[in-house]
Design a protein around this nucleic acid. Structure first.
Lengths: 303, 303
DNA sequence: GCTCATGGATCAGTTTTCCTAACCCATGAT
DNA sequence: ATCATGGGTTAGGAAAACTGATCCATGAGC
């Protein structure tokens, strides 16, 4: 299997398509002489005449007429394949769970798009599959560091730590401050998942007599639980980073800011296939995410 | 639609298939440095990394893994297409009517094959279609020059003229010579076609009282009519070139050698699509046929 | 933990390929 | 007869590809 000179094939294909050397030369941005030489070279290589030469231009021989569509198709397939991988290489498919997506990533993502306008970002807001990370659908994902991953091919990198403390409306906070943590026994606990891990984790660190994570209302995600808290429905266990907005505007306040604990599931982190971890687009996103989280990390340290 | 450097694509394809530059370099008969440069060039051109470099060799990135099969297929298609036209270019498809085939072409064709062993000859022994010449199935054909062709795209070239005279067994010839042409009235005429044109043409030139082409037996082709004549079945109208063997061996003789006429259908000739007339293989066959017929032509002139 | 073998990266210098520019030639139209 | 068109051809220079030597990182073997 000996391939003929590829550039000569390309020249021939163009000449055959245009039925003339001049048009082909224009397409290839060369002179007619170059096209002429290429085609002669190819004919010599194959030992087959591809064009019959008239005074007024050239005409394909049967051999040439048979070869042209084969080449046109092959070259088109190559172009399509190349375009596809170029497109894929510039498309960053991110998976991000709802709370992190709505409350951290989406407000910041425009900055990433501005910094890297050539990268097409496709964000999917959803939870991970049970297996940990779907490396066929996504290039990178947000997750938590202590997720039970047993796949060595998945890389993990912390973005920001999760510090939790109860928060509620200013009015409710005032009465809680007056009563101390025991006042929580009279309050409605708001859980960001039906699993109630948020309050369980916090109560494990700061046990409060008469308060159990089994009480209170559950929501499918943190955003909804926080919205309920803003409406005065109860006390939500806040991730200090993800609830920054409400705390800054004063819509919600922390009655016991010193009673903050780390989440048992670890930090918010990025996960991705290790073999793709240094892909330019993935690398750029990781670098950007770390930088974007820096203010949040600093704020936690100051607190 | 901008094609990347084709030689770089080829180098990449080989490297991807072998999962290493050294094996690819061997396949391409170059050094690993050359492969390395090609692939770097391609990566720069595409702006996509195709290999991840380890200390122990390279591994395809997802982009590279996607691109390789596309290229492998495209290159394979090109090779197959090129091989096909090379093969076709060396295959000469000849159509030849039965008499000319059996009595002229086939005994001489081995000489052509010996002179041009690279050309694969495919002889079809059959009559032409009514339309004159099937240029899709055949590269060249034997025919007769006065065939009513109205297609200007068909080229025609005489091979040898057709001179006809009655021939028969020596015994029958002796009695005919004694009786003169009028003796034909008592003989059985043998016709090489049901159309009886052979005797009609000859009788138009040399009218014989009491002899008409409407009498006698017909055969599907000259060969069978001649065989019948050899068996003493009658007098056949012989093409002097095609019946040379029988005349030379004395199996048949011409009682009136001076009463020879040209066939109304003209000469035996070659026909073919004018646009393919100068194809190397066609050209070679035409030149060979003219040369092969020269002894026959000379013999007619001597007679 | 040192050494070596492996496989790729890099670079200077050379070879090969490719291209241009200017010319030629054949033919059909004016 | 002249011109316009479209290829063919050539020398010379630009661009590419290649070589061969050297360098480098790493994993295996001792």
């Amino acid at each position: 299997m000996r391939l003929p000179p590829l550039n000569a094939l390309r020249a021939f294909e163009a000449a055959a398509r245009h039925e003339g050397y001049i048009a082909a030369a224009e397409e290839l941005h060369v002179t007619r002489g170059a096209v002429s030489r290429h085609i002669k070279l190819l004919e010599d290589h194959l030992g087959v005449q591809l064009f019959r030469r008239h005074a007024k231009g050239v005409a394909l021989t049967e051999a040439g007429r048979n070869l042209q569509p084969v080449l046109e198709r092959a070259f088109r397939d190559i172009v399509l394949g190349v375009e596809r991988i170029s497109r894929d290489a510039q498309e960053l498919r991110i998976l991000c769970p709802p709370a992190t997506s709505l409350r951290w990533l989406m407000p910041r993502l425009d900055d990433f798009r501005t910094c890297h306008p050539d990268i097409r970002v496709r964000l999917t807001t959803d939870f991970h599959t049970l297996s940990g990370f779907d490396n066929t659908e996504y290039d990178i994902g947000f997750s938590v560091s202590k997720w039970p991953r047993n796949d060595a091919r998945i890389a993990v990198e912390t973005v920001f730590p999760v510090l939790m403390t109860p928060i509620c409306t200013p009015a409710m906070a005032e009465s809680l401050r007056a009563s101390g943590p025991e006042g929580l026994a009279d309050a409605t606990l708001l859980h960001d998942t039906p699993r109630r891990t948020d309050w369980r984790d916090w109560l494990a660190t700061y046990p409060v007599k008469g308060v159990s994570e089994t009480s209170g209302d559950t929501f499918p995600n943190l955003d909804m639980a926080v919205k309920a808290a803003v409406m005065g429905a109860g006390v939500v266990m806040a991730d200090l980073v993800l609830c920054r907005d409400e705390l800054e505007t004063g819509a919600l306040v922390a009655p016991f800011p010193d009673l903050a604990c780390k989440a048992s599931y670890g930090d918010v982190c990025l996960v991705g296939e290790r073999s793709r971890w240094e892909d330019p687009k993935v690398r750029l996103f990781r670098d950007w995410a770390r930088k974007a989280a820096q203010p949040d990390v600093d704020r936690l340290h100051r607190a």
